[in-house]
Amino acid sequence: MQYSTTSIDAGALRCVTAALDGGILTVTLNRPELGNAIDAAMSREMTALLSAVAADDAVRVVVLRGAGGSFCTGLDAPDFFDPDGRDTAELRALRDAADEWRVRALRRLPQPVVAMVQGACRGGALSILESCDIVHTAEDARFSAVGPLEGALPYGATAKSASEVMTPRAAGYFLLTGEEFDGAEAERNGLATRSLPAAELEAATYALAGELAAKDPIALRFTKETLRHVGAMSWDGVLSFTAAKFAELKTLQAGQPSTRAAAVESFLAGKSKPGLGG
């Protein structure tokens, strides 16, 4: 069923499609003639769509995929970079918009996001994967950072994403050489969660999405929040934070207003730091 809310009509989207079935929202990057490369229009549509999804309890899990034979071939260069090397305010604003949905809005979705990668996944598309919670890839998918091959450096979001999820040696090697690697290697180096034969990819991805959609959505949301925050905390901070979140979770699950939400928000804002001495 085509996805629609009061704030967005998926039928009006051109670079993205969205369909909801049984709590599973399939979001498809839809520029197959260009390998689903990200342009300014796709960035606008993805930002609007993700904003609507974040507030929609009917969406229990998101599957992100590409139309045609590729997942995404990165940024569509003519939209984001001047051929003469000039860096105008307009171009910077367009790149900021591409970053907004790839590294902020997608990462902050309360629902679990499962990427399903087939074909090419290049350059700026690596940041999409890092923002997803789970990445399923075909064994024969093709990944690359591309920057060094084009006499450039990997765009900042790409370098950051690779360093966050890939092993340090793998990130260094593949970003420095621009060498292409397959889905099996993506699983080994941490970029992908699981690599599968291409014929099994879709069934396995939607089976997993179905399992996630059947779980308690509040518990899943809190788990995502916990994973997002604990990496920068001390052990004492982690224990204090998770204890507060657990109490809030139980209150929400009981259908009662949370008395701990304000305390947790204060903790994250740095106004209250119980147990941060470790």
Rank of each mutant, 00 (worst) to 15 (best):
S161R: 12
A157Q: 02
Y155C: 02
A186S: 09
P274G: 07
K160Q: 08
R221E: 14
S161Y: 01
P257S: 02
R188M: 03
V230I: 15
V264C: 07
E225K: 09
A213W: 05
E225H: 04
V230L: 14
L191N: 08
K250I: 01
T223W: 05
K160D: 12
A209I: 08
E200H: 12
A214G: 11
L227Y: 03
A199G: 05
A204G: 07
S240I: 02
G190S: 08
R221I: 01
L220D: 01
E180H: 06
T205V: 10
L227S: 07
Q253R: 01
A204V: 04
K224S: 03
D182P: 05
G190R: 12
E164P: 02
A170F: 11
A254C: 07
A207W: 04
G231R: 13
A247C: 09
P257N: 03
P154L: 07
L252G: 03
R169I: 14
G178S: 02
A207P: 03
Q256G: 01
P168V: 13
D236E: 12
L201S: 13
K224T: 07
E150H: 15
A171I: 07
P217F: 02
A213N: 11
T167N: 06
A198N: 08
D216R: 04
A269H: 04
G151M: 00
Y155P: 00
R188G: 02
F246T: 15
H229M: 10
P197K: 04
A141M: 12
T251Q: 15
E180C: 05
G178R: 02
V264I: 15
E185Q: 10
R228P: 08
A254Q: 09
M233I: 11
A162E: 00
E179T: 13
E187M: 05
F267Q: 13
D182A: 11
G277I: 14
G255C: 00
T158R: 04
A162V: 10
A170E: 03
